[in-house]
């Protein structure tokens, strides 16, 4: 007679559950003893003054801005989504940039890796 799987695994499963109960209890109890919850209480008052430095610029305002200036690349041509062409000039730039194909090709050639790193360095700094 073959034993049913349950007969074999039941003792193991029970001890495993006891294990889990035990180590959850141990972990929680030792953190309780450390008083870690109180220690992690937010230091909001201390950081309030710092917020004056990091609060992001207001998103909403009631000024009319540069509606008629074309200084932000928002001339009538880029207004039409049909005219939207991606010519990235940032870190995705095609020249030595990070398109999938270029990433693969660049990696084949150590000299290109070096040239690429220098180009990126210049662009970022």
């Amino acid at each position: 007679m073959l034993a049913k799987a349950g007969d074999i695994f039941e003792p193991y499963l029970e001890s495993h559950i006891m294990d889990k109960r035990h180590f959850v209890k141990t972990a929680a109890s030792s953190l309780l003893a450390l008083g870690i919850v109180a220690a992690a209480a937010p230091g909001q008052a201390a950081s309030m003054d710092k917020c004056f430095g990091v609060a992001k610029a207001g998103q909403n305002d009631c000024a009319g801005i540069s509606g008629l200036h074309s200084c932000k690349g928002s001339s009538t041509t880029s207004y039409d989504p049909g005219d939207f062409k991606a010519v990235p000039t940032g870190t995705c730039a095609k020249m030595g940039g990070l398109s999938m194909q270029q990433a693969k090709e660049t990696l084949k050639d150590p000299a290109r890796v070096k040239a690429f790193e220098q180009a990126m360095q210049k662009r970022i700094s």
């Binding site: 909001q44 309030m48 609060a55 992001k56 207001g58």
Partner: peptide, 20 residues
């Protein structure tokens, strides 16, 4: 005077600034 919408979130840094 401030723009109300910029302080709608009671939890961000801007909210701390306005409270102060």
């Amino acid at each position: 005077e401030v723009h109300s919408e910029n302080f709608f979130n009671p939890h961000d840094a801007a909210a701390q600034v306005l409270a102060a």
